Structure formats: structure tokens, C-alpha cells
Computed example of a mutant assay.
Amino acid sequence: MDDNVSVGVEEEFHIVDLSSRRLVPRGAEVIERLAGGRYTAELQRSAVETNTLPWVYLGDLRKDLTELRARMVEAARELGLAPVAAGTAPLTTPETAEITAGERYEYLHNHYQLIARQQMVCGLQVHADVADRDLAVAVAQRVQPWLPVFLALTVSSPYWMGADSGYDSSRTVAWQRWPTAGPAGPFANAAEYDQAVADLVRADAMLDAGMIYFDVRPSAHVPTVELRVCDATPLVEDVILIAGLFRALVIKERDAAAANEPLPPVRPALARAATWRAARYGMDGDLVTVLDPVPIPARERVESLLEELRPTLVALGDWPMVRELANAALSRGSSAARQRAAFAERGELADVVDLLTTETASGLGLP
């Protein structure tokens, strides 16, 4: 097994006003105070994306994530603002929507209309190295059965436009409206995948390969497999947990593909249903997968994934850290559950925003 597989993370953050706790279209002002090119704009002017470097060791990834967050928190604070790492910002209204200037973002707005205007959501993307594109296409399909577990671990968007959505991840519900989102496949190889992408461009469903929003995909710009199903995650510890689990799963399935082990069955309807269930109930409900449609408690699914990946995690030297992070995540419950508990105290969404700004900045060594 190649134990030098790097993993990198893209995090998206909402920008909120510290006084009103409302989402504000001021991401560009925060970016202006941050040099180095690892902070970028998003479709909505109320969001900022950060990009780590690729790292072999999870400890290095954690340090990079922490430093990127700390710089952004400080830059935002100088403006009376704060970043929020969550699928949605609780205090949001349709009037908040302002599209970032630029040809690409204008295309998205003009072409997709309501979907683009309501794209006030933030996600977490994890990249794991797979240099061979045929292998990357195979791995992207092979990891599909476990995607509901990754989503359930990160659900952080119970509130949509100022009200409880009834979902633990309302971001997923909004995201699935894009014509190139959701499960993908089957694809026999990279050529077949590339042809499908070309056909989607020809059908005017998207502008280019960068607008493939599958739950997991071969990256459009780097030699990786990219996990895209997760909500943005307030706690750095949970980001590292997801990165460690996904890297191990990619390695395991890469080796299985190289050994010509059979692919799991491609069942798009059941895959969509499994994602829906994870978005609806998160860690507090039952999950199903494309391999097992029987509802099983989410915590049991997490434990099954850990056991499935334990040999790989041990070989990588990641097992003690990942097991500890998983124990902590299971103990404190999901972000969605914590947000609802904060709201239940006084019935104020401002308290939920305060929780999220505090968690997003926690562990960064800031005063």
C-alpha cells in the first residue's frame, strides 16, 4: 500500500455581521485583507473559500487548516464580521443574495436563476490523491456506498432562510437541485466519464467540467478523487476526521480496483434516497446505503465504516487519531443537533449564530 497519499481540504464559510448575526455580502472585503491566494470568492458574495495544501500527515493538515481559519477570523473581526463554517447561516433572507462579479458567476446566475440565487450554502470538499484517471473514476464509484455516513457526520444546516427546515442538512436539499449534482455512474473508465461530461456541456446543462457537482468525482483540475457530499463543518476536529476517513477509504478502494475486485452495484435511485435520508435525519436517525437498504442507526454505520477502514488506518498510522476524533464526534452529537439545542434555550436564532461563530473559531489559539 502506498502510504504517501496526500489529502487536502477546501472549506467554505459564510460571512456574518457580529452585531446583527445576519449573513452579509461582504466576503470580498475579508479576502482583500488576506494575502497569499488561498482565500477565494464564491458564487454568493456572502461566502469565502479556503484551500489547504495537500498533506501526507493529518497533523500537518490540521495545522494548515487552523492557520487558514485563524487568519480569516482575525481579518473578519477587524471589520465587525465573523466566518461561519456551516451548511447554512441561520439568519438569512432572500434579499441577502448578491452574485459575485465575473463572467462565470454571471453565467451561473443567468442560466440557473432560482437555483443560483438560493445558493447560500457552504460545503466541505476533501481531495485524496489518485494520479491515474481511470483508477480515479473507478474509486469515485466504489466509495459511493459510504457517502451517507460522511454526510451524516457533517450535517450542519437545520435552518433555512430563518426557519427550521426539518432537515439536518437543508444544504443538501438545495444542492441536489443542480442538474449535475448527486450520484453518478456507471462509468467503465475515464474516457466514458469524459464523454458524459462533454455530453452535459453539449446539452447546455453546464458550462464546463468544473460544474460537475457529483457527490464524489475525479477532480476537474487536480489528480485527486474529491468528496463533495458534506456540509461545511464548524469544528476543525471534525474536518480532520472526515479527511482521515476519506483518505483511508480512497486507498482501500483504489487497491481493490487495482486488484479487479467487482464494483458495487450502481443504483442511482437508491443512492439518492440514501443521501436524502442522511440529510433528513443526520446522526440522530437511521441510514441506508446502496448495498444495504435496511435502515440502521447512523452510529452503527459509523462504527461499521471505522472497522472497514481500520486496517488501512493502522497501516497509515492514523488509527489512534481517527478513533479518538470519531469518539469525540459521536459523544457531542452533530452540529445540527447542537444548533437546535442552542435555539431551544431562548428561541433565538442569534444564539445559534453565536454557537457557530464560537465553534468555527475554537482551537485556533486566538484571544
Rank of each mutant, 00 (worst) to 15 (best):
Q176Y: 13
N260P: 03
A196R: 11
A256K: 05
M161N: 14
H221R: 13
G210H: 08
V201G: 02
L241Y: 13
A248I: 02
P268M: 00
T233M: 15
D199A: 15
A269G: 03
P186L: 08
D204L: 13
D231H: 14
A269I: 13
A181M: 09
G210S: 08
R272Y: 14
G210W: 02
S169V: 02
H221M: 05
M211S: 11
Q195Y: 12
F214D: 10
E192V: 00
G182K: 06
V266D: 14
H221L: 05
L235H: 15
A257C: 06
A232Q: 09
V236C: 12
V222L: 10
D168T: 15
A184R: 04
G166C: 10
A256S: 12
A269D: 15
P262L: 04
R254L: 05
E253A: 00
R228W: 05
A269M: 15
E226F: 03
A220E: 06
V229H: 11
P264Y: 11
A191P: 01
R247N: 07
A163M: 12
A273P: 07
I242T: 14
S165E: 03
V225H: 03
E261L: 10
I240L: 12
P223N: 13
A205W: 05
R247W: 03
P234W: 09
S169Y: 11
Y167T: 08
F214Y: 13
A274S: 12
A203R: 14
P218C: 09
F246P: 06
E237H: 07
S165L: 11
V173L: 13
H221G: 00
R277W: 03
A232G: 06
T224C: 06
A243N: 09
F187V: 00
P268R: 02
E261N: 10
V222S: 11
P262R: 05
R171Y: 10
A205F: 13
R247Y: 05
R217A: 11
P183M: 05
P186N: 04
L200V: 04
A243P: 11
P183N: 08
T224P: 02
A205N: 03
V201C: 11
V173T: 08
R228G: 05
R254Y: 03
W178G: 01
P223L: 10
L249R: 04
Y159I: 15
D255T: 03
E192R: 01
E192K: 01
I240E: 06
P268S: 01
M211R: 12
A258W: 03
V229D: 01
P183H: 11
R228P: 06
E192I: 00
L249P: 04
G244L: 10
L207P: 07
A248H: 01
R267E: 14
P223D: 08
A205T: 01
Y193N: 00
A163F: 15
D215R: 07
T275C: 07
F246L: 10
A257F: 01
G210K: 09
E261R: 10
E226G: 00
T224N: 00
R171M: 08
R267V: 15
A205Y: 07
P264M: 13
W175S: 00
G182Q: 08
G162D: 09
Y213F: 12
A163R: 14
E261G: 02
A271K: 02
D164I: 09
A203P: 06
E192W: 00
R247G: 02
R254S: 04
R228V: 10
R177A: 14
P183S: 07
A258H: 03
V216W: 06
P268T: 02
P264V: 12
G162L: 13
R254A: 14
T180Q: 01
